[in-house]
């Protein structure tokens, strides 16, 4: 399938660029930026979302709130490639005067809100979704959240709100990489069973392998079209540090930085 090949190719490029960014900005959260690459790639390169880099806040855009901002440095190459800012910016992440910092913020074209602090994205997205519904607009609101972020109580305030107000234009995508900063979520405070929790709160849950591009694309595409009642949540089962064996095997991968030689080795293998 032509589209899938294209998306796979783009995802591989985004991954390489993310590693290159890590080489110059060791402080970025690499592992959690790697687990959501297929999701972001499908949404943008798969044209599931409507967007316009020339008019970033145009009314016709679908809204994507990246609530797990730390773990979205992989969004930088994608935004640059789509024309939100110059590609050269990717080579200056974290440097004095750069547009792009170690944690993305709302001053970067393509980011809607501030999410360096966790637990805010879903509630703000609920307000946006409610306003759009009231204006009878058909654009959708997508939220990308981490699983660890679900520990924030404010997220559950928003989960209740979305169901009560039947925000059926709202889609929450959980990058379920199962690891927080210090350990596996099952060992910190168990979040499972996530799908049952969401169902009990009035949401429609579905689940995919978050690294299977075909699954991710078709799930997101059908959620985009879905006008049935209730907010939707897609639990994307992912691997934190995906594609970097040393990170994949490490419960502390959130705070690990790779050495330059390791990055070069990985890039060489990818090519």
């Amino acid at each position: 399938m032509e589209l899938m090949e294209y998306l796979e190719k783009k995802a591989a490029w985004v991954k390489q660029e993310t590693l290159k960014i890590h080489r110059i900005a060791p402080g970025i959260r690499l592992a959690s930026s790697l687990s959501c690459i297929e999701i972001l790639t499908a949404l943008y390169y798969g044209k599931i979302l409507k967007y316009d880099p020339a008019d970033i806040y145009c009314e016709e855009r679908d809204r994507l709130i990246i609530s797990k901002a730390h773990g979205s440095v992989s969004f930088y190459p994608l935004l640059a490639d789509l024309g939100y800012f110059a590609l050269e910016e990717l080579g200056r992440v974290g440097k004095a005067g750069s547009l792009l910092g170690d944690i993305p913020d709302c001053s970067i074209p393509g980011y809607e809100t501030v999410n360096g602090s966790l637990g805010h994205g879903l509630g703000v997205a609920c307000g946006i979704a409610m306003a759009l519904k009231r204006k009878k607009r058909t654009e959708k609101v997508f939220v990308l959240s981490g699983d660890g972020e679900l520990y924030e109580g404010s997220v559950w305030e928003a989960i209740m709100f979305a169901a009560h107000h039947n925000l059926n234009n709202l889609v929450l995508v959980i990058d379920n990489n199962k690891i927080c900063m210090l350990d596996y979520c099952t060992r910190i405070l168990n979040l499972e069973p996530l799908d049952e929790k969401f169902r009990a709160f009035g949401w429609q849950p579905s689940e995919v392998d978050g690294h299977n591009m075909k699954e991710v694309y078709s799930a997101l595409q059908s959620l985009k079209q879905d006008g049935s009642d209730g907010p939707k949540v897609l639990i994307a089962n992912t691997v934190k540090g995906k594609g970097v064996p040393r990170l994949e095997a490490d419960s502390l991968c959130h705070i690990r930085a790779l050495k330059t030689e390791e990055i070069d080795q990985l890039l060489m293998e990818m090519n």
Partner: peptide, 21 residues
Amino acid sequence: INVGIAEQNLINIATGLALEG
């Protein structure tokens, strides 16, 4: 809109509405 006894969500909902004008 009554968000319930949920001040954090009060602010977040208000922000989302305001972002849409």
